[in-house]
Write a protein that binds this DNA or RNA. Structure first.
Length: 627
RNA sequence: GCCAACGUAGCGCAGUCGGUAGCGCAACUGAUUCGUAAUCAGUAGGUCACGAGUUCGAGUCUCGUCGUUGGCUCCA
């Protein structure tokens, strides 16, 4: 904690130095300075400047900051009245707004750095800039940001700076950034031929043969686990008429994120020409053109009755599936798992490799339960999450979001459900062993989010467990209770991977492309030394395939070293070399991934057993000796 | 959507002042038949993202569009 305070004091102080440097460089009359808080790896400061800052300016700004530090000026604090403050920051609109927004009785403190720079600030700061001389900092980037995050307000230039107490720590941090860049799933995905994108389908991955093998391995594993827990899988339409979205509420709340298939409101009886169609929405650039349409052309219209939309979520179709028949309390819980393709339209600039896409699959499920079953069902879901996350060797953290102000439904149901969830979380993680976000739940029910932590310590929200009191209501779902009355089930939405696409992105970075055996696109690379060994190699390949082991063989006449190199670049866990010796003795010689170590002359049956064991146990570690 | 940067062969990159489109790897062909991370020789591969503009001439300068990346915002 001490270190945290220290970090906050000097990062914040450095932020003032940055502001002072920028003002000295551009002139106070040309600069509007906003706020400069500290963040995880440094700080930023927002400005309005007469021109845009580019990377070429970074040195200049950093040098100016160092020059200012060398002046060894004092940071002096002064308490001022609101009037005094307003006078002092006359012409600085952001500071003025901040002052006016503070409660009337709040004490205003201002900090001087030297004589000529003053900033509104709660402090505390270092006493003298000298104390910052040993700090290490480096401008990270400049990007756009809005004043108070509101896109309708001023657009500011945000200067991000890395800042650490010592050069070594900055160096370590830059090293970590470098490491993260090397693990970039977009880079590794291309290197390992896992997936690709094309501009005709922004944010919609093409899964290449190798990537798809991994995808299937993840699906297979998910299905295995869920089947054990009594889940039954369904598949449903990807595109539904808007009637469905009107019932579910998506048409009202989510329509701008949906890919639309407009309906047809008619056909042209004769060729027609539509004059004055603008080719561009931007003023001054758009030129009106006549568009020709041939007789028989359909006239598409989003508002017609046969308009359809691609599903952004599986829930409505799961509700329809439940509704097909009447249900008895004896059937519940009913667990419909689903891996269908979903589409969500994102604003341009929102996409990011596999982390944020417009087309994806979830390891989704909708479970229909009686209220009395919530507790046990959630406990079971958490058990599934435990099992799956531990298989990937990652830890996770739960966040509990409770009833928001604009909740819908019966407050008593909410209270009972939240109490049940809290009890499970307390039992599982201990009180305080998870975070509570009061009022952060969805309007239709409380939720638990599961954040996993990857090998670099970065956190990702993957799993989510949400109670839903709204959809059963919208779709009029019922079950017949023991006493013969019709009751409404509660729906639990849940996913463990979250989106398969994003999860794969995360594990690519977590494992740096060096996947556990069971997950590797190909698990064994087969290298016959000479063409005369192809026959034996083929026999081995067939045997592996029969045993559910994914193997690839290179039967070409290339040099064996080249074959090994190719498989090593693909990071195949085992590369087996087959020559005279192996063929005559029915053995394989294994090259272990990640080392130059080999295990010679392993009996074929032992090798198959090793591979099968890792597939069955979903082992994290590669077996590196014959047992 | 907003701010900024980027887009040259499958991949990684070079291309100066506006003057004939280049390199490495990969691919293909031939030779080599090899015991653990690059055998040798040769060949082919381009709408320089797309569209306008300036110019005698544009990969290079200007504008626009699309895509990607880093942020903002939102989210799984």
């Amino acid at each position: 904690m001490e270190r945290e305070e220290f970090l906050s004091v000097y990062r914040h102080s450095l932020a003032h130095i940055l502001a002072k440097a920028v003002i000295e460089l551009f002139g106070i009359e040309n600069v509007q300075y906003a706020i400069g808080p500290q963040i995880a790896d440094g700080f930023y400061y927002d400005f309005i400047l007469p021109r845009t800052i580019s990377t070429e300016d970074f040195d200049m700004i950093e040098n100016k900051m160092r020059e200012i530090l060398k002046r060894k000026e004092d940071f002096t604090v002064r308490e001022v009245s609101r009037e005094e403050a307003l006078e002092l920051f006359r012409g600085q609109k952001f500071k003025t707004e901040l002052i006016e927004d503070l409660p009337a009785d709040e004490k205003l403190t201002i900090y001087y750095t030297g004589e000529d720079f003053v900033d509104l600030c709660r402090g505390p700061h270092v006493e003298n800039a000298q104390q910052l001389l040993s700090c290490a900092f480096k401008i990270k980037s400049v990007s756009g940001a809005y004043w108070r995050g509101d896109e309708k307000r001023d657009s500011l230039q945000r200067i991000y700076v890395y800042a650490f107490p010592s050069k070594d720590e900055l160096k370590a941090h830059l090293h970590m950034i470098q490491e993260a860049m090397e693990r970039d799933h977009k880079k590794i995905g291309a290197q390992l031929d896992l997936f690709m994108f094309d501009e005709t389908a922004p944010g919609m991955p093409y899964w290449l043969p190798r990537g798809w093998k991994m995808y299937q391995a993840l699906l297979k594993y998910s299905r295995e686990v869920q089947e054990r827990h009594g889940y039954t899988e369904i598949a449903a339409p990807l595109v539904n008429n808007k009637k469905l979205w009107l019932i579910s509420g998506h048409w009202a709340h989510y329509v701008n994120n949906m890919f639309m298939v407009p309906g047809i409101s008619g056909w042209l009886a004769a060729d027609a020409e539509i004059p004055g169609v603008l080719d561009n929405l931007q003023e001054g650039i758009a030129e009106p053109q006549a568009v020709k349409m041939l007789a028989g052309s359909a006239l598409y219209n989003r508002e017609t009755e046969d308009t359809m939309a691609a599903k952004p979520m599986n829930c409505p179709n799961a509700m329809m599936t439940y509704k097909r028949t009447i249900h008895s309390y004896k059937e519940l819980p009913i667990r419909y798992s689903e891996y269908d393709v979903l589409h969500r339209k994102e604003k341009s600039g929102q996409m990011n490799g596999l982390f944020r896409v417009q087309e994806f699959r979830q390891d989704d499920d909708h479970t229909f339960v009686m209220e009395s079953q919530i507790e046990q069902e959630i406990a079971d879901i958490i058990a599934i999450a435990d099992e799956i996350y531990s298989t990937f060797g990652v830890t996770y953290r739960a966040e509990f979001s409770t009833r928001p102000d604009d909740f819908m439904g019966d407050i008593e149901v909410w209270n009972r459900a939240e109490a049940a969830l809290k009890k499970i979380l307390d039992d599982k993680y201990g009180e305080g062993g998870y975070e509570i976000n009061e009022g952060d739940g969805a309007f239709y029910g409380p939720k638990i989010d599961l954040q996993i932590k990857d090998a670099l310590g970065r956190e990702w929200q993957c799993g989510t467990i949400q109670l839903d009191f709204q959809l059963p209501h919208n779709f009029g779902l019922t079950y017949q209770a023991q006493d013969g009355t019709l009751e409404m089930p509660v729906v639990i939405h849940r996913a463990i991977y979250g989106s398969l696409e994003r999860f794969i992105g995360i594990i690519i970075e977590n494992f740096k492309g060096i996947f556990p055996f069971w997950l590797s696109p190909y698990q064994v690379g087969i290298v016959p030394i000479r063409e005369e060994h192809n026959e034996y190699a083929k026999k081995v390949a067939d045997l592996l395939q029969e045993n559910g082991i994914r193997a690839e063989a290179d039967y070409s006449d290339r040099n064996m070293k080249e074959k090994i190199k190719t498989f090593k670049n693909y990071k195949d866990p085992y590369i087996i070399v087959l020559g005279d010796r192996e063929a005559s003795e029915e053995t394989v010689s294994i090259n272990l991934r990640g080392s130059n170590r080999q295990i010679q002359n392993v009996p074929l049956s032992d090798f198959v057993r090793m591979c099968r064991k890792m597939n069955e146990e979903h082992s994290l570690e590669l077996i590196d000796s014959v047992e």
